[in-house]
Nucleic acid binder design. Structure first.
Lengths: 350, 350
DNA sequence: CTGAAAGCGCTTACAG
DNA sequence: CTGAAAGCGCTTACAG
């Protein structure tokens, strides 16, 4: 074994000609250190390829350098993408991510979170929707004074920083895109009524229709619940009749997939006779055929930002990052095969 | 704040009337402690709800209590399921899981693994397929003398414990099931030729056909590469002709989904005119229609076992768990709507 | 089988 | 702005 001995803080201090404390201060920031010594330390750190021993640091500081990630297992694709990136981000800043999801009932989960606070002693928590809306959990964290960041919460109050996309704009953008293709008879499958995002997406849909002087027909707006199964009867209601829409904007990809499946069964071809747009850019968007036109949330960026907020908030006492800041990120319209010009227009144009 | 102070080893020792060392020994096992004192310690631990401080333990022992999980990001559903369970298992045994995947090129990944060994100082590693076959990585771990467990490796040599299902049997089981439904004209879409599992699944298919005196037609065996896209032309080759099969066994779910999609386009109804069986039980198996009949690997169990092997191996010096033991777990045939009796048989029976 | 001492590598007060 | 001392909560030798 050519095991290289890891450098300790002492080694760095000696090489830089300062005390351990000065090294520690440079590395942890926040406190003033003369520019000369700071440079000397940085140099020594570089040369020795030093990185502080996590265990020692934890033991001495009584901080855990761990942050929790709380999720609800439902949408595995969204969660796992976020998780993967959060894990990576955490490692970049010498933290550990401790993920925990709802397995059994909510009470069990509540106890698990309590344990994260009391036993694991996490420094902060990321809450993925829809947990970011759970009042019990929010209260628990607030009482324990654990910093947390909410992802896509319904409530945009300033109890914590939050990260989200503009759901209204997302609904607007997809609808506008369908309109730009030439569609006028556009339907919408709504998301679960227990989430504010569902309402916002619907409002975006309606605003885009109105802005383009298109009629919003009540029978073209049907209820779904974000699951594939809920999309089946919803799509049926939309497509079974004679005067059916030429485009459907479903509030998520699962329901969009259901719409395409129902159309298929009814002998309606996608995208030739029916354009479909989703929202999420889930895994299935590219494993179905045709590939789904959808809206992609910047999951990677959200995960990185969440970790940054929690960790830099911790290390620096400065309040640059106000506790309750709202971070609204840009989404991306992903144009694939499931949406195209309506047939009728093509013939008209010829 | 009603923050409860965590008990320290000292508190346990005092309550039990022994020294810190005895407490430590009871908790870490392996060394002999008199039954009386052991019980006293266990009692005290229980009453104080004591759990050792991970940071202190790491610092003192020079073990990291961390294990790595190496994966290749391709099949996100398989990886994320495994990851989630491994995370949970690790926490149950007071370990941390440090996942790392191939992001860029293999060289970068190689360096990342080296860093895991040198800097993070992981105690052990779990290798998910297909990384469990990577000779560079395997050699790196062997040289560094890091214990590792391979999941579904091609090579069943005894360089490490391995966990897998019997791929041959899985191929056999699915084929046998299709035969039991009454199918005789059964085709197979093979998996990527660079994985031993592909060959074994195919051999299972052929063995089941032969065992039932069914003809294996070369034109009914086509090449795929485990991706949805690769399944499209493969399925076309199978279904475009006149004398098409009544059932297809695809070596994974992605390709099975492709087969159903192609059938749909060709006006062949699933499952009425074509039964399809996959393998994996991926997310998409239940978000497509019809829901896919497939074979489920016991991912949860695999993850738990992998963690157990690595951690118990570590704590106890006993060799109960031989380094190179092969753990072959049972899979499960999941019967859903995509496979049913062939049409022709139904009419015959009437 | 059991315990007293020393030390793991950091950071937190406490001085200056 | 900087440093010497003490201590975080365990485990590793070392004795007995």
């Amino acid at each position: 074994m050519e095991k290289v001995k890891r450098a300790r803080i002492q080694d760095v201090a000696e090489l830089a000609g300062v005390s351990n404390m000065t090294v520690s201060r440079v590395l942890n920031g926040g406190v003033k250190v003369s520019e000369v010594k700071r440079k000397a330390v940085m140099n020594a750190v570089e040369r020795l390829n030093y990185s502080p021993d996590a265990a020692a640091r934890r033991l001495a500081s009584k901080k855990s350098y761990m942050i929790g990630l709380l999720y609800q297992d439902l949408d595995i694709s969204y969660v796992s993408k976020f998780l993967l990136r959060a894990l990576k981000s955490c490692r970049n800043v010498d933290h550990h991510l401790v993920p925990d999801g709802i397995d059994g009932d909510i009470d069990e989960f509540y106890r698990a979170v309590k344990k994260l606070i009391d036993v694991t002693q996490i420094d902060g928590v990321i809450l993925l929707a829809p947990i970011s809306n759970n009042p019990q959990i929010l209260e628990l964290l607030q009482n324990a004074q654990i910093p947390f960041v909410r992802i896509s919460p319904d409530d945009h109050s300033n109890i914590s920083p939050l990260i989200a996309i503009d759901e209204f704009k997302a609904g607007y953008a997809m609808t506008e895109y369908l309109i730009s293709l030439g569609h006028t008879k556009i339907a919408h499958i709504k998301g679960h009524p227990n989430q504010a995002a569902s309402r916002l997406r619907e409002e975006g849909f309606e605003a885009a229709m109105q802005a383009n002087n298109l009629k919003i027909r009540p029978e073209y707006i049907v209820q779904g619940y974000y699951t594939y199964d809920s999309g089946i009867p919803a799509s049926h209601a939309l497509l079974a009749g004679d005067d059916r829409p030429t485009a459907i904007f479903a509030a998520n990809d699962e329901m969009a997939a259901a719409a395409i499946s129902v159309a298929n069964k009814l002998g309606i071809k996608t995208p030739q006779q029916l354009s479909v747009g989703g929202l999420d850019d889930a895994q299935l968007a590219v494993t179905m055929s045709p590939h789904l036109t959808t809206i992609r949330q910047p999951i990677m960026e959200m995960a990185e930002l969440a970790v940054d907020l929690l960790t830099s908030n911790m290390m620096q006492t400065n309040k640059l990052l106000a506790r309750g800041h709202r971070h609204i990120l840009d989404f991306e319209l992903v144009k694939r095969q499931s949406a195209t010009y309506p047939e009728i227009n093509i013939s008209t144009n010829k």
